[in-house]
Design a protein around this nucleic acid. Structure first.
Length: 576
DNA sequence: GCCGTTTTCGGCCCGACTGTTTTCAGTCG
């Protein structure tokens, strides 16, 4: 198995954990964390970069030492430095950092004084009442530790992150409640939620009010609150039932822009902006931008960016992946919006595993303002969904023709989500595929092949002249199933050469292509289709999640095929 | 450990809340 970028990320994060517990130089710790974050945001594989002569040069935050460590990891799959740390400390110790309230200092004390080496040990020691005796601990700490472990969110990888769509569902009622609180002049959800990240660890709400009392009260007494984690005048944190943590921050209206900028992040983006400030003798914090004691910006985000010679930067871009450099040069992308979308190119009906008829789907799509909708049911290999054989597809296509004669204001496209078989051939004969306006080819089975085999399989499918779109290109299900092994860079290149398109599946459980892949596609000149893969009328509204991900990947309207009017789309899909 | 049109050494973003401190360290974001 080749080394993935995520392997390097995990190793660097683990090194950082141990160095923190060890009490090493905090800036050294940060260097490892920064490098981990940088690697996770790279569009190219570090394994490939490490093999190139100067492949790792010039990546910000990765200097001589860490570049060498990456090369070691790529070559040996291990890092001796980390192995050494694991000899000093029990390997399970870093998991203790995931317990809320325990940081490196406390973990070090638990290990030194009580020989605690794992979450199990910690639980036992707390239950036995041994922790209260330690300096800096108390009965209260002991109880809170038991409570945190009891919550069941403490694992080696930390608490599970919430999918964006789920967080949206949970937080919407709370947000509505706070909006109505006395004195609230402005209110917004910030953080990774505003940046439209695929998952969020917690939700940050920011309110502007001269007096914070009323809104704070509503917040900590909200029905759905399970536990108040912290309560202060300007900041409170609660845990909602279901385990989502929400923080509320209240600032004066004159600081709203600065606070919104600060709490939107990302952390890396903020640090970069603050550094720009430091270089100009300015202090940037959540209350404003200051020269000495004088406030020179803060009411709006625009003011702050303007101060540094930049236009306002869309939240989805704020990951310190080149957006500040682009903004300084006036070269920010004009990101695609939901309003640019003219149709949905992937939907299912009752004919296979969808819940509505083609006609119902068409009406729902029309209500969304779409000009077209592809009816793309499964092919026969997907037996669970009663996939269509050649006859079935011919029949479905005929039905679409009939519907089109009747429908006004929207056109249905004859389509199929055709299964890519293990050898890369397609599940249906060319003759019937030729009858379709649009063919999506997707992998549903045999996902455990080697990377080489899987890549060849998919490229062979793209060789078929009838294929237009490669559907949900990595097959991952967020928090449930990892992507299958595939060299997306090669697949993308093959798609460009063959005049195919890759799908960005907008379903919030999928979102593949992800943001990093989108950026990669854009660099290669590959166009994408943002499609919902709707199995119901409501699913058609999931488009916004795909758009969020596309925007995070710097995608502009011209990069997306379904921003085109139908005649242009047809031309674009035609293969040579 | 990274980084540098002031620097190859000496900086490295900044503030709120908690608990146990009696003036602040630890944790968190």
């Amino acid at each position: 198995m080749p080394i993935h970028n995520n392997d390097v990320v995990e190793i660097f994060d683990e090194v950082a954990d141990f160095l923190e517990i060890k009490g090493d130089n905090p800036f050294r710790v940060r260097a490892y964390r920064n490098a981990a974050r940088t690697v996770s945001g790279l569009s190219r594989s570090v394994a490939d970069l490490a093999k190139e002569d100067k492949g790792l040069d010039g990546i910000p935050g990765i200097g001589k030492d860490l570049a060498e460590k990456i090369r070691t990891i790529v070559a040996t799959k291990k890092l001796p430095f980390l192995e050494g740390l694991k000899k000093e400390f029990p390997p399970g110790l870093s998991a203790l950092l995931r317990v809320r309230g325990l940081g490196p200092k406390k973990v070090a004390a638990l290990h030194k004084e009580l020989k605690i080496a794992s979450v199990e040990d910690l639980k036992k020691a707390a239950a036995d009442g041994k922790i209260r005796a330690l300096a800096g601990f108390s009965v209260k700490t002991e109880q809170s530790i038991l409570e945190e472990i009891g919550r069941g969110q403490v694992t080696d990888r930390g608490p599970e992150r919430f999918k964006l769509a789920r967080a949206e569902e949970i937080v919407t009622p709370l947000f509505g409640e706070l909006k109505g609180a006395a004195g609230v002049e402005e209110i917004a959800i910030a953080g990774s939620y505003r940046r439209r990240a695929e998952t969020v660890g917690d939700v940050d709400i920011l309110a502007a009010a001269e007096k914070s009392q009323a809104v704070m009260d509503r917040f900590v007494h909200f029905d759905d609150v399970d536990k108040v984690l912290a309560e202060g005048e300007t900041k409170s944190s609660v845990l909602l039932r279901g385990g989502l943590q929400v923080d509320l921050r209240v600032v004066e209206p004159k600081s709203f822009g600065a606070a919104l900028h600060y709490f939107t992040g990302s952390k890396a983006h903020n640090i970069a902006v603050r550094l720009m400030g430091v270089k100009r003798g300015l202090k940037v914090n959540e209350y404003g931008v200051f020269r000495g004691k004088k406030t020179i910006a803060g009411r709006t985000e625009e003011e702050i960016y303007k101060l540094f010679g930049m236009p306002w930067i869309e939240p989805e871009l704020r990951e310190d992946r080149g957006e500040l450099q682009a903004a300084l040069k006036g070269k920010l992308p004009h990101l695609v919006t939901l309003g640019d979308i003219r149709g949905d190119l992937h939907s299912h009906t009752k004919t296979t595993d969808g819940r509505s008829t083609a006609e119902e789907m068409a009406e729902a799509a029309k209500k969304l303002g779409y000009e077209y909708l592809a009816i793309s049911d499964h092919s026969k290999r997907v037996t669970m969904a009663h996939g269509l054989d050649a006859k079935g597809l011919a029949k479905a296509n005929k039905a679409v023709d009939k519907l089109n004669a009747k429908l006004k204001g929207i056109t249905l496209l004859k389509s199929i989500e055709c299964d890519i078989l293990a050898d890369g051939s397609l599940d249906l004969p060319d003759a019937v595929l030729a009858e379709c306006d649009l063919v999506i080819a997707s992998v549903h089975y045999n996902s455990k092949m080697s990377k080489e085999k899987q890549t060849k399989r998919v490229i062979r499918a793209l060789d078929n002249r009838h294929v237009n779109i490669f559907g949900h290109p990595t097959g991952r299900l967020i928090n449930e199933r990892p992507a299958y092994e595939i060299d997306l860079e090669r697949v993308m290149k093959a798609a460009v050469e063959r005049g195919c398109v890759l799908e960005l599946n907008a379903h919030p459980d999928r979102l593949d292509l992800n943001d990093v892949h989108c950026q990669m596609a854009k660099k290669m000149g590959l166009k994408i289709a943002v499609s919902t893969d709707a199995h119901s009328l409501d699913d058609l509204k999931l488009m916004r999640f795909g758009i969020g991900q596309a925007r995070r990947g710097w995608i502009e309207p011209a990069d997306v095929v379904n921003t085109r009017p139908l005649p242009e789309l047809r031309k674009l899909l035609k293969r040579a």
